[in-house]
Amino acid sequence: MIAYLTRRILFAGVLLLAVSLFTFLVFALLPTDPAALTCGKACTPERIEANRTRLGYDQPLLTQYGKFLKGIVAGRTYGEGQGEFTCGAPSLGYSFSQKDCVTSLIARTLPVTGSIAIGGFVLWMIFGIGLGMLSALKRGRWPDRLISIVSVVGLSFPTFFLALLLLFIFVIWTQILPFPSYVSPTEDFFGWCQALLLPWLTITIISSPYYIRLTRFGMLETMNEDYVRLGIAKGLKRWTVLRKYVLRSALIPIVTVAGLDFGATLGGAVFTESIFSLPGMGRLSIKAVSDSDLPVLVGTTLVAGTFIVVFNLLTDIFYGLVDPRVRIHK
């Protein structure tokens, strides 16, 4: 088990390094001159050159990458004298258009994106697994059919269109809800829920159908397994069998997928955040695109990638813990 864990963690580390190198190189090799983007309208060539030196864009690529990595570990100071400024560790760079360190920009968005992802995750798991179980237990009867129709409808919604539709229905048309405006849950819990209700609903409608299907499929498969039949034959209570055997084994693939989905959502719910104008990481990325703010883009890509890798790893570990085959084989 320990060997397995070590291998997985090492591999996750290698993946992260590869992602950072790739991201860094892709952005560095672009035709856009990063130094030219650091100042606005009346930009003189001298000033561009000054900023190039200040931000280190004049150095060879690998040196730049080394400095970037070092910044993550030890923080980084740019320029010298009057124009000097420091971004503390872990430094992901400095954004000229936002006049702030990338790390603090991203840190500010995390509570928002985290709120959306956690709330959405809880809801879609409840609805996904709950309705999936109902579907499996009532298979072929009307609840099953209704649920499967609803899932197809949910699946067919492009995220952005669903978000727009909900916004139109609840905010513009019936005016049941005010325009979402994020507040911290510690400050105003009710306001927090109110602002996030529509984003959560959007994510739940979009994501639940997959979990309904996974649950239903997993349960039907295990319900046909011999050991379950045996349990029922032995006279165990139906609910006990369901809970102890069926649900437990049906949940393993669900947790795997859920871990990956959650990691991806943490990287920024781009459409939900843009449409409901919530200042999360997805929206930060979109803004950075329209500002051609390369340091922020490198930062958000890397942080989002990290979430994916970390949750991949956690899923692997979970898998290793529950599945004896993995433990022994690897």
Partner: peptide
């Protein structure tokens, strides 16, 4: 699979 494809 590790890349956030939409953002990238």
């Amino acid at each position: 699979m590790t890349f956030p494809s939409l953002i990238l």
